[in-house]
Structure formats: structure tokens, C-alpha cells
């Protein structure tokens, strides 16, 4: 991949402001708003900057309404930025030039592009024609996608007869037939069971290794992010709170560790050691300050009939929650 700047995605002071209608509840307010519309400006994305290098997989994290999807849509050319600049593969996305569109893809876990009543294979054919993919290349790409996703058994069934997971596999395949260099994945594993999530995840990793494609991914499942992304960008209220290695995120924002203890005689009150939560299997999870972990572990072992004890990092979900709580 050759681009003038070394970044595959370059974002600088990117901003998106929506103007939304506002009205109070009730009939009178509804009539009033017919005549006088009150609008309010909301910064969905409030001036963010980052670069993504070719071949990187970057996780884009944030609660609902943080501005993740808006950013992805600006980067894929569906939304015009209010101000600031972004370039993807050295093209300004909002112009939606054909050469740009041929090199990117957007997968939205909650929406589908496949035609409902016919087998996915026919939708693939349609994409082949629209993207003008030469037949030999189409076949070899399909073969490759089949290796990774095991599509063979499902592409000839009407899409409406597929399970959610099977449909997602086909959606992803349809989005990748033209071998894009940049993938925007918005919640690609949403609603899927754990096994299928794992499959999709390993597929994304393999695809990235094989093709060197750049991936920007949003997900609510931390497992996705942990498995795929070394680097994460945390966004909240349209601003970037953190941009760096996932491990740094934990180091920086997690001030606690979790000690899981099982005692011989079952439950005991451990609240004097720290914030404690009883677990279903009879154990107790203790949240303790990171710096105290060693001392408290020692104390527990010395004073109580411990049968099992493990020390764990605070789950990333909770770390992220703490990050957002800081705001």
C-alpha cells in the first residue's frame, strides 16, 4: 500500500455537530413545535485527532453515544465533517470518489446489505458486478473467505433462513469481496453467541495478517478488543480520553486488583480486607488497591482457611467504566 502520508487513516481536529430538534412532552408542546422549532447543537465528535498506520488493528471504545459510529461514518464518507480534516488512503472520504470506495469497506453489525429472499451467493454476484471484480479474482477471494469462514454450506441458502451468526459471516464476506485495504467494523460481533464471536474475531485477525489491511473496530465486547487490538482509542462525549496500548490503559486507569478467595467453611465476612462480593460458586471476590495486593494476600493466607486464591487484573470493562466515570 502506497500513500503519500505514511498513515492509512489520518484524522485531525475532526468535528461533527448535529443540530437536533427539541421539544417538551405533551400535546401543547407538540403543536408549539410545529410552528416554532427549537434546535440545539450537539457535538457528536468534538475535535479528535489520531493516525492509524497501514496494517494496524485499532479498537475504538466508548459507551453508546460516544461518537464512535459518527467517526466511522465520517471516515467512510457517509457523513460530512463539520470541521477538521480526515484522509483515508490519502483521499478525503466525504467526496466518495470511486477509487476510494473501491478500497474501503464498512460492516455494521446491526444492519445488513444482503438481499433477504435469495441466497447470499447471488448478492455476492451483485457486488462482483458493481465493484467490477474480475471473475478469477472473485473466485480466489471467495475461496479464501470460504477457508476462513466456512461459507460453503450457507451461501446457497436464502439469507432469511440463516442464523444470525451465519448471516453475519455472509455479511462480512460480502463486504470483503473487493479486497478492501481499510476495514471499518462497527460492532461486527453484536448479538452473536460466544463461539461465533470467537470465529469472527479470529477471521479478522487472519484477514489482517494475510492482506495487511488496516482495521478500525468498535465493539461493546471487550473480548473482541482484547483479542484483536494492541492499540485502543477510548472516546467519550466526542473526545478522546485515551489513545495507546491496551496494557497501558489498564496500568493507567486501574488502581485496583481483584483477589478471588475460596474458604474451607464457605462464606465468611471479608469486608475488612476491602470491597467484597460473594460469588455464585461460594467464593468471594475482593477488590483491593493495587499497591496493597501483596500484603492483603499474605494476610488472607495467614489468617483464614483458604482452599483457593487467585489474583486478577480488574476486567477491562470495569477499567473502561472507571475511565468514563472520571469524566
Amino acid at each position: 500500500m502506497t500513500t503519500a502520508t505514511s498513515a492509512a487513516i489520518h484524522v485531525e481536529q475532526l468535528k461533527k455537530t448535529y443540530s437536533i430538534h427539541e421539544r417538551e412532552s405533551g400535546l401543547a408542546a407538540a403543536f408549539r413545535s410545529l410552528l416554532f422549532r427549537k434546535t440545539r447543537n450537539i457535538d457528536a465528535v468534538a475535535g479528535i485527532s489520531f493516525d492509524v498506520h497501514p496494517g494496524e488493528i485499532v479498537g475504538f471504545l466508548g459507551p453508546n453515544g460516544a461518537g464512535k459510529t459518527t467517526t466511522l461514518k465520517m471516515l467512510s464518507g457517509l457523513l460530512h465533517p463539520t470541521s477538521g480534516a480526515c484522509r483515508v488512503l490519502d483521499c478525503p472520504p466525504h467526496r466518495r470518489e470511486k477509487r476510494f470506495l473501491r478500497r474501503i469497506t464498512l460492516v455494521m453489525g446491526q444492519r445488513n446489505q444482503l438481499v433477504w429472499d435469495i441466497p447470499a451467493m447471488d448478492s455476492f454476484e451483485l457486488n462482483r458486478a458493481i465493484y467490477r471484480i474480475p471473475l478469477p479474482l472473485f473466485k480466489s477471494t471467495l475461496k479464501e473467505l470460504d477457508d476462513l469462514l466456512e461459507l460453503n454450506a450457507i451461501v446457497r441458502k436464502p439469507v432469511r433462513n440463516l442464523s444470525l451468526g451465519e448471516r453475519m459471516k455472509c455479511e462480512i464476506a460480502a463486504a470483503l469481496l473487493h479486497r478492501p485495504d481499510v476495514l471499518f467494523l462497527d460492532e461486527p460481533t453484536i448479538g452473536l453467541d460466544v463461539t461465533m464471536q470467537r470465529r469472527i474475531r479470529s477471521f479478522i485477525r487472519d484477514y489482517n495478517t494475510r492482506t495487511g489491511a488496516t482495521v478500525l473496530l468498535t465493539s461493546h465486547y471487550m473480548a473482541d478488543v482484547e483479542a484483536l487490538c494492541r492499540r485502543v482509542i477510548v472516546i467519550h462525549h466526542g473526545r478522546i480520553l485515551f489513545d495507546g496500548d491496551l496494557s497501558d490503559l489498564v496500568q493507567r486507569f486501574s488502581s485496583t486488583k481483584t483477589i478471588v478467595v475460596k474458604l474451607e467453611n464457605g462464606g465468611a465476612d471479608l469486608s475488612r480486607f476491602g470491597h467484597s462480593v460473594a460469588l455464585e460458586d461460594g467464593g468471594v471476590a475482593l477488590r483491593v488497591p493495587r499497591s496493597e495486593t501483596a500484603r492483603i494476600t499474605e494476610q488472607l493466607l495467614a489468617t483464614l482457611p483458604v482452599t483457593d486464591l487467585t489474583v486478577e487484573d480488574t476486567p477491562i470493562e470495569e477499567v473502561i467504566e472507571q475511565v468514563f466515570a472520571l469524566e
Binding site: 464518507g77 457517509l78 470511486k98 477509487r99 470506495l101 473501491r102 455494521m108 444492519r111
Partner: peptide, 17 residues
């Protein structure tokens, strides 16, 4: 429903599509 996105992302004249 917002599914027009998929049309706009295709490298083809959107009105024609």
C-alpha cells in the same frame, strides 16, 4: 431506516443504483 448507507458506499452512481 438508515440502510441507504450501503448504497452510498458502492463505487457506482448512487442515483442510478
Amino acid at each position: 431506516e438508515g440502510t441507504l448507507d450501503f448504497v452510498l458506499m458502492k463505487p457506482e452512481d448512487s442515483q442510478l443504483l
